[in-house]
Design a protein around this nucleic acid. Structure first.
Lengths: 184, 184
DNA sequence: TGCGGGCGTGACAATTTACCGCATCAATTT
DNA sequence: AAATTGATGCGGTAAATTGTCACGCCCGCA
């Protein structure tokens, strides 16, 4: 990080996500990495904020309650085409990815996403002393575990239903669950 | 399509796919729908053809033998930014979709795609379609595929490096890449 | 009290992975 | 020019994982 005037020079970033906890955690992580963060939980709140805050960067979730983040991307891009926008989503699909990029997003990431990865996606390779490591991608095993847990949670711990949703055999799911989560 | 002067007015379309049968079938289908089609099986053949043919539309496959269709998209876009390019692939992933759109493709479709769908995609601009957000969580298989593609992309297609990053065997990665991804 | 579903588990076959090795090719290095 | 390094493709085989079927056991419900 540069030595002087951090508060004044810090790039402004708008974070839009409807999950309060996720928002708070990510906001803090980004602030710690030198961004000045403003957050909102829906497009209606985000737009006025964007007008006033005039952020150079934005991270927006695809699923914002009932609204879609796609419209917000379009609006942010219309407000200032130079804004670097990353779309972040837990429910990724090719169709929404294509649409997001066409509407002006600079990148499209799936949750879980590491803060460094998000920053990299924003296209800000801050030439300072941070992130000497090339962010290690999670192993497929690790990712799979996270995903299974998430879906299992959505189904209130119902293993059979989860297996169906994941298109895997119940027996296999049981076996995977019996094993330890992989540590990196 | 209009009734008169088809031969003169017919929009020109460049079709690039390394599968000869597929190419022939699709070319015929597109011609029957009023396009003037020129086909090629690799970027090396496609580029000169594009220069001479100056197509307003293009349909290009992602996997062209050993080459990638992404480079061709970039080249076609550089040749004439107004060219409407659809990327068509049986190995679809979010990572390559994002890449394709950023390089100038107007749309990205997965095989099998019917000709009408392709034509619709060629004419589509952003925002004129309601993208269904977040249906079901992806299957573990799909998730794995997307993750692999993403990391592969981060490593510029280097299979060995990707295998190392993913902590999986290079041989295994090769086999997974050779297979087609599951349709959702 | 029977029915449907979820859960846990054993067993065995089918498939997939890990791990070899080897050959080729391209880019460096010596 | 020859040697070295690293990427890629691919065959083969042992080891591991998954698919599948079959149980028995509960629980909630009509």
């Amino acid at each position: 990080m540069s030595t002087a005037g951090i508060a004044l020079e810090a790039p402004r970033l708008l974070l839009v996500d409807d999950d309060e906890i996720f928002r708070a955690v990510l906001a803090r992580a980004l602030e710690r990495r030198g961004f000045q963060v403003q957050a909102a939980d829906c497009p209606a709140a985000a737009l006025p904020l964007a007008r006033q805050f005039s952020p150079g960067y934005a991270v927006v979730d695809l699923r914002l309650g009932d609204a879609s983040g796609l419209g917000l991307i379009e609006a942010l891009h219309a407000l200032d085409p130079r804004t670097r926008i990353v779309m972040l989503t837990g429910y990724a699909s090719i169709a929404t990815a294509v649409e997001a990029i066409k509407l002006g997003a600079t990148h499209y990431l799936t949750k879980p996403a590491d803060p460094d990865e998000i920053i990299a996606a924003l296209g800000r390779t801050s030439g300072d002393a941070d992130i000497p490591v090339a962010a290690h991608p999670p192993s497929v095993e690790r990712l799979e575990w996270e995903h299974i847990q998430k879906v299992l949670n959505q189904h209130q711990g119902n293993i059979s239903a989860t297996a169906r949703a994941l298109k895997m055999h119940r027996r296999t799911l049981q076996r995977k669950l019996a094993k330890r989560p992989v540590r990196e």
